[in-house]
Nucleic acid binder design. Structure first.
Lengths: 192, 192
DNA sequence: CCCAGATGAGACATTGCTGTCTCATCTGGG
DNA sequence: CCCAGATGAGACAGCAATGTCTCATCTGGG
């Protein structure tokens, strides 16, 4: 045991378990603790040593999802350049976390409670601010509220993640499909 | 008992149970059979007399959702006028079923099986055909596939249904928010 | 080597939901 | 009135997943 009070490899182990769980739960959101353990290559006992219970596991996944989103948002530099380009960067950066987000998006348990994780509010605010910047700069239309645009972004990410799992959308098209639909819509642009 | 083999009021009763269940499960997808029964104002025993089990109930809801979608599609007259207007009509007609669709959309159980209800395929085909018509007519851009546009439509409907439940989007804005985002996107159009 | 700590396998009780059953009660048509 | 059929209330066992426990085993640092 290290001086930290836990073995130095536990951190990466925990991360590995979380990512396996995310990958599995994306495909089968009702997977058992036993299935999650098997997917991570550990026993159910060890899984319970890492996470007190299923609820704790989901909460940890929520935390991970929030962190991934914030990382993606940081890397996308939402204040920089045109808002449209910032949205494209954001979608591109967020793709690796799309499966996890799709799972969390469908986990009603996280939202029905009287109060949800503050991290989501912070994310909503940051993404909403990006859309607002686009509106103020005359780049985005103003008849769609930033709140709705943010919500729609989440919805499209989840849709595309599931469509990708089913093979209805190619993974390499993920960023384009979402960003182009969200930004430009289905209507053809008039040639200038 | 009527000559039909069941009381004449059972049909409407069954429909009432289904709609109550849809309304409840939209808010809490993990609701118990007991909660569903209470929400419909009947006992659990009677609920089991109508639907053999939870699975049968979900399947019946799926059937209802498909029927509502097909009805909305029929009323939207997807072959008539511009494709964009047809999409707007479709979204407007589908709004009453949005909550049910959002529930079904998150019910992975319906999709993970090796084969899903053929009704969805028929719906996908009809909606996809609408988008394809818009593309062929030069109205819609061709770099977003009809399959993805269909998927995105479902996703936006589910997103907006949940956002409406949470009060983040007004119910009266539902058709506009979805149709305008799907058709026009966030970017402002250049003035002609 | 020695041992603390981590792990895997499995036993175990508990819990919440399900599906089925019975029985008393209600209701509407004949 | 009479009765078939529907209903509500509740009992009951079954089941699947959870959470806790023990114990044998493995592993790495000192």
């Amino acid at each position: 045991m290290s001086h930290l009070g836990y073995p130095c490899f536990m951190a990466i182990d925990r991360d590995h378990v979380l990512r396996s769980a995310a990958a599995l739960l994306t495909r089968k959101s009702t997977a058992t603790m036993d299935e999650v353990a098997k997917a991570a290559g550990i026993s159910r006992a060890t899984l319970h040593r890492h996470f007190a219970g299923r609820d704790a596991l989901v909460r940890a996944l929520e935390q991970l999802g929030i962190a991934e989103c914030e990382g993606a948002l940081d890397r996308a530099r939402p204040e920089e350049g045109s808002a449209a380009e910032a949205v494209r960067r954001l979608v591109r950066e967020i793709q690796p976390a799309a499966g996890l987000l799709a799972f969390l998006y469908g986990e009603n348990q996280l939202w029905e409670g009287d109060r949800q994780h503050e991290g989501w509010q912070r994310l909503d605010a940051r993404i909403g601010a990006l859309f607002q910047r686009g509106q103020r700069g005359g780049e985005f239309r103003i008849d769609l509220t930033p709140v709705w645009l943010t919500e729609a972004l989440y919805g499209l990410i989840a849709s595309c993640a599931w469509a990708t799992l089913d093979g209805r959308v190619a993974a390499r098209d993920f960023p384009t499909m979402i960003a182009e639909l969200l930004l430009g819509g289905a209507l053809r642009r008039e040639e200038p």
